[in-house]
Amino acid sequence: MSSTSSDKHAAGVFDIRNIIGALMGVYGVILALAGLFGEHEPEKTGGVNANLWTGLALIVVAVVFIGWARLKPIVVPEHVEAPDDDPTRPGPQRKRPPAH
């Protein structure tokens, strides 16, 4: 089930901070572009270019999360046991939840 690698390594893309950063970054870029080139719709927002500002804010959030993950990477130990599935949330299971 779980493969073992020969040495310790950083968690990389699976570090949750990188995943948050990636999603916020993609959203930020799309919204900023929509704000720059799309319809502005000032009658809805009261004159503010909401897409652009939200997009820029999201890009900042993305940079902070990815930067944090870079500066303090989480190290994955040599041996990783396959996780137990959360018994309250079956869905597709690797293991049967324990019958208590």
Partner: peptide, 8 residues
């Protein structure tokens, strides 16, 4: 194994 590590 990284994602296993996190999900565990």
């Amino acid at each position: 194994d990284s994602i296993d590590f996190f999900l565990s």
